[in-house]
Nucleic acid binder design. Structure first.
Lengths: 197, 197
DNA sequence: AATACTATAGCGACTGGTCTACATAATATG
DNA sequence: CATATTATGTAGACCAGTCGCTATAGTATT
């Protein structure tokens, strides 16, 4: 009972984190005020500083960790279902394009903007971001290893996959089209299916 | 004489634009105040609103156009010197890594952060960004065409090159290492040199 | 004399952060 | 079991500082 109660109580905390993550994704870190987060989550100012005595920076780091972690979970689940890295990318593309179009290309990567704004100014947010990228990298590397890629090619190829996705997402948002994602993923898949790197 | 004089007078305007571009690149759009730009350029507030009656949004768009245009010029010059797209990427990588290390990974892409923050909120900045990306795309496509790529592959491959560079630059800044750039460019070069897409 | 440009004071709105008052919950003590 | 006591969490007023922007006075250029 105590545990469930605690979970209930932590609901306010979670609500704050997710409200912050959504707002940071759309308007960036500096462009989002604590008042926006408070209004979106319905919490009071006192609650925010109770759960996050470190203020905006701390909730920023928590939002990066939470939103990045959700992407990691999606990656892991998709990697489990997919038949190799190229199939993984195609499946993720389908999801990604769906989200983009549903939000009219407003919702991009939930951590990129915040990280670009706060690197290297905030050590806490930067560290959260590096941890997320490391998780993503691990998922990709595991997939490539299971696809029998030569050991020395695994890490670089995994990085190229993440970089390609991030860059394509940026272009897609700015241009308001999913085309950059299809083009970039197409190129990555060519590379992944050739395998003779 | 009149023309030169006008150029002289426009120096304040240019100074404002470049001060803005540098600050936006490091701290983002929302994170940079007009006071910062004024202080960095040495101009007075009145001058800013004289040259940019549209205020922050207008100087933001001008900064994107100017900084993006400088990158375009670098691309064009490098494309002229390089022996094909893969060589182009390797040469640009050398430059990029040099700039990154010289700034301790503080100076990334001069337009990415601003665009992510203001898309789709600001039509003017978004339009400036799309124009820059279109220029970059044209440079890449021209290079691929000269390298005798099949017509249908040219546009997607050009997009993938830009996306890869942008994503790698993001990862490099956050991780404080040039490795993501080397890895991503390596993968792109493999693709470019195979050509059997 | 007219135009182009500079300089600064000041506006209302908003920033992140602090502080105190208060409600609720868990624990301790008779 | 009932009542004190201490954590825990909520609520909002308030602060100094900064935001983008406007208005006005002044200087320089043509």
């Amino acid at each position: 009972m105590g545990i469930e109660k605690k979970k209930q109580l932590k609901k306010q905390r979670d609500s704050l984190i997710w409200a912050a993550a959504k707002l940071f994704r759309r308007q960036g870190y500096s462009g989002t005020g604590l008042r926006d987060i408070l209004a979106a989550s319905g919490a009071a100012r006192g609650s925010l500083y109770h759960y996050f005595p470190g203020g905006k920076e701390q909730i920023g780091a928590a939002a990066v960790t939470a939103a990045g972690g959700l992407v990691t979970e999606t990656f892991v689940e998709l990697a489990r279902q997919a038949d190799g890295p190229a199939d993984f990318l195609r499946r993720y593309t389908a999801l990604l394009v769906g989200w983009l179009e549903a939000s009219d290309f407003r919702d991009g990567c939930p951590i990129t903007t915040t990280l670009l704004e706060t690197t290297p100014g905030s050590a806490a947010i930067g560290e959260a971001g590096r941890a997320v990228f490391a998780d993503w990298q691990l998922v990709m590397e595991t997939m490539l290893a299971q696809d029998n890629w030569p050991a020395v090619q695994i890490a670089p190829m995994a990085t190229a996959m993440i970089a390609g996705l991030e860059g394509a997402l940026l272009l897609a948002r700015v241009q308001g089209t999913a085309q950059p994602i299809h083009d970039t993923v197409g190129a990555l898949c060519t590379l992944l299916e050739a395998k003779e790197v």
